[in-house]
Design a protein around this nucleic acid. Structure first.
Lengths: 146, 146
DNA sequence: CACTAAGACGTAATGTTATATCATCTAGTG
DNA sequence: CACTAGATGATATAACATTACGTCTTAGTG
């Protein structure tokens, strides 16, 4: 899965430094970032590594999401590396609208609540999107309230 | 607020039927729809009512969201009328990936547990996005499982 | 090796969603 | 009427995402 080296191709300089897949490059990049990145930010940052088109980035992100390594933040149109690549557990993201920080949590109670709700409604949940927007602790102490 | 009649303008036929604001038109339209609509779907459908540009739709949606009448479904890039325009309570949406139906709920436990999580993390929640994707009851009975 | 099937890749074009800008219109005020 | 603040309409553009298609690589098969 996730390919493997693509080998020589056209021998287009050594620039692409051999044996890493685009998915690996994208994941490594996301792990280095403090905040979620949009696909086009990733594209921009990895251009020198041979990632040259949106398609390439989105393909890599698809792989990584399927593998549970990356999660899309819907309300930001951005992508972030999971802290603990546990595909099973639903992450909750706290998104600070002041500084842009995003922190990931895994909250058992929330997961249970969703299960309970679905028992009532007959709905079969497959994937939950839990994003809480507001003001993080740091920003609250720095500027008491807007 | 929300404008008021725009009056005669250029007298461009009676087509626009006087005294309704764009926001009112958009809200009425969303209430008539079974499923959330994208901004451009709304634009298309209300073109004959004098809604002619994306800007107009987005401005109307902004008003309606601020008033608590409409909610954006982040994972669909679409907009839906709230069942009960209660701006205070956080809605949870169950989104069927099979038939596209979206149902709104207000779950007290979920709300409580978000509050509890934020007490632990020091985060001050302002707006929560709770979207559960999966398979609705009807689709489950029609086609047991994919 | 020759052949095939699957899948990643590059490239280009296109589609979809959202915002910026600016001149104009309108209502309200003095 | 002159002035202002804010909504509006029109156009353009930015930001995000997908599709189409042909090439190349790899793994599997005989």
């Amino acid at each position: 899965m996730l390919g493997g080296s693509r080998g020589g191709s056209t021998g287009k300089s050594e620039g692409r430094s051999g044996r890493q897949t685009h998915a690996e490059r994208v994941l490594a990049h996301l792990r280095r970032q403090e905040k979620p990145q949009t696909a086009y930010q990733i594209l921009e940052d990895l251009r020198s590594d041979g990632v040259t088109a949106p398609t390439t980035v989105y393909r890599a992100l698809d792989h990584l999401v399927a593998a549970g390594d990356v999660c899309r933040i819907e309300s930001l149109n951005a992508w972030t590396a999971r802290l603990t690549p546990s595909q099973g557990k639903t992450p909750v993201f706290e998104i600070c609208e002041h500084c842009g920080s995003v922190t990931e949590h895994v909250d058992t109670r929330l997961a249970r609540d969703i299960a309970a709700l679905s028992r009532h409604t007959g709905f079969q949940p497959e994937r939950s999107i839990l994003e809480i927007r507001g003001r993080c602790g740091s920003c609250r102490s720095l500027e008491p309230a807007p």
